[in-house]
Design a protein around this nucleic acid. Structure first.
Lengths: 341, 341
DNA sequence: TTGAAAGCGCTAACAC
DNA sequence: GTGTTAGCGCTTTCAA
């Protein structure tokens, strides 16, 4: 258990200069001569100096830490976005703290507080499904700390946000289903307070209308969109003898459940019922038949989210640019939604 | 942009006491009277005091941060373990920094360094597939910082580790396949330097031997165990006309790929070929047929890993207890491996 | 181009 | 029980 970690003072001592000079040399301050910098770097390596970020954070007020809050890192979409954020952040010498809200409002509030206490330099977040108000996010803004939201956003907040065009994604998908013969399309939606579900539902409705099909409220269901929800709802619809020939879900998980139940009840997919999900989770390509879905462009989203974040960070308090970026999602057509040739 | 964050001095001033007293009160020090504590807490709330963890970390040398390194948070197993760790850690007022190595050796080394510089109080890790040496982990130990490894471990290091009994899991699975009629079982393995793949291969071999079946090296393949690897290898085996009637993979991803290729080539699963994976990824229950697999007990593993970690942390430099915990995995039998009744 | 000095906010001996 | 004092390791004016 060695406690004798090297400090800038040790370097200073060895070179007969002061700690300030060492600090400046280490930070590549232009006012330090190249000769000194070289010597400092050399000794630093030699005595295995490791900078103490804690001390520098305390003094400078900059922790070089970014907090990222996601509902769950477990989902392909979120983990891809995180990777995009990490890549840019790391290249700029920032570290990323990933926190999961587990889609729980209280946990989200706690997490925000914890990150603030850890003195992160900024926060990037995707809002939990159960979040009821955004006071905790408002607090971040009030403190002058950069905040960027992605995917699950809110328009109650004046912040930079990055989303895909959910309306467009849903519209394309439903239009595609109709073009392949569907007339009675069930829609699995969720909490309409959450932008993405609201937009996808709008896209669904608009595609129907534009194709001269009336929106039937009996075909629209609301749930948490988990696999079990998909199973339950699909079974209920089958049992209720409601007429349908297509299903468009706002989530790949619930469409997976629906597919299982359809097959269990002897429905042929896509011959009798055509289905499509949203999210392009890897498993949608594994199923039988593979499921048509919408890719959310997670990699560019991560990149752009991080870029917006650093823009904000560098702007400082000067111009509070609340920029909204909208990416075009991509419809991935697979067997579950097309007529056999 | 308000910079006027409240400090313990502000509280002290209001109450005509000193900062030390406030600090002690806030930390529930037993030498402070209840009356004082109450007053302090009240004022703290009133002026919206938020403790500065950075300052406290610098002074005390304890950051209350735990670094967790996983290959990818994207996998169900790892995210469950993380959740288990987070739960205990948070209840003890520790924060968790999740870092992903993306199974890349260099990234892992960098990550360790970054966490060390962030002055985490300890590190919990699962080693990357490509890791060639463990010097970076050795460094952690030498600094006297608690280190616990889980799942992907190494016996080159004298540290606490938590694993499942991979040999047992594989043995049970292969024994099950044999009991259901398999005689020529293909095995998908990976880098044998990694304990889990080595152990699973041993379990496979021992189960064969104990059932009087000779181990045929031609049936054992090595790869990265991704879906594509499973596809490629399965196709190669089919093309090579090697005789086989079962496949046991060390990963659910590659068995998924194998299943696809088997079906594409007209093989009936489980009638002609019985298959089983490892990991109990959610999608294994979605497939057609659902895939027999081994559950890795992620939840208990997270809990126990965290417990071992805090044991170590609390032991301090006193007794360097390198405890090894071995959990029993559970064989999940599904249609892919059993004879139709 | 470098040094001196102060201090970020907190904790922890030691004193009383 | 509470106060005094010093300092964790670094950055940053101000001065030279």
């Amino acid at each position: 258990m060695k406690k004798n970690r090297a400090t800038i003072h040790d370097i200073a001592l060895k070179l007969n200069i002061t700690a300030s000079t060492v600090s400046r040399a280490l930070n590549d301050n232009p006012r330090i001569s190249d000769a000194t910098k070289k010597k400092v770097l050399k000794v630093a390596k030699q005595i295995n100096y490791q900078p103490n970020h804690i001390a520098s954070a305390l003094r400078s007020g900059k922790s070089k830490l970014i907090g990222v809050i996601v509902p769950t890192a477990n989902r392909n979409f979120f983990s891809s976005v995180i990777r995009g954020i990490e890549e840019l952040a790391n290249s700029l010498n920032y570290k990323v703290i990933i926190s999961q809200s587990y889609d729980d409002f209280d946990k989200e509030v706690q997490t925000v507080e914890a990150l603030l206490n850890a003195r992160v330099d900024g926060i990037i977040a995707s809002i939990a499904k159960t979040t009821e108000n955004v006071d905790h996010f408002q607090k971040i803004i009030e403190k002058g700390i950069p905040l960027v939201l992605f995917d699950r956003i809110t328009n109650l907040l004046e912040v930079s946000q990055v989303v895909i065009d959910d309306h467009y994604g849903a519209y394309q998908t439903v239009d595609h289903l109709i073009k392949n013969g569907c007339k009675r399309i069930v829609h699995f939606s969720s909490n309409p307070r959450i932008n993405i579900y609201h937009e996808r539902k709008r896209g669904y409705e608009d595609a129907l209308k534009d194709n001269g099909i009336e929106v039937d409220p009996k075909l629209i269901t609301f749930s948490n969109l988990q696999l079990e929800d998909g199973r339950r709802i699909m079974q209920e619809i089958i049992d209720s003898k409601i007429d349908f020939d297509g299903v468009f879900s706002s989530s790949d998980y619930s469409i997976m459940g629906a597919l299982q139940v359809l097959k269990e009840n002897g429905y042929k997919v896509p011959e009798q019922v055509k289905i499509a999900g949203f999210g392009n989770e890897p498993f949608t390509s594994f199923t039988e038949p593979p499921i048509t879905t919408v890719d959310q462009k997670s990699i560019p989203m991560g990149k752009i989210t991080a870029e917006s974040f650093f823009e904000l960070l560098n702007a400082g308090s000067s111009s509070p640019v609340a920029k909204k970026t909208i990416l075009k999602p991509e419809l991935i057509i697979r067997k579950s939604s097309i007529n056999n040739s």
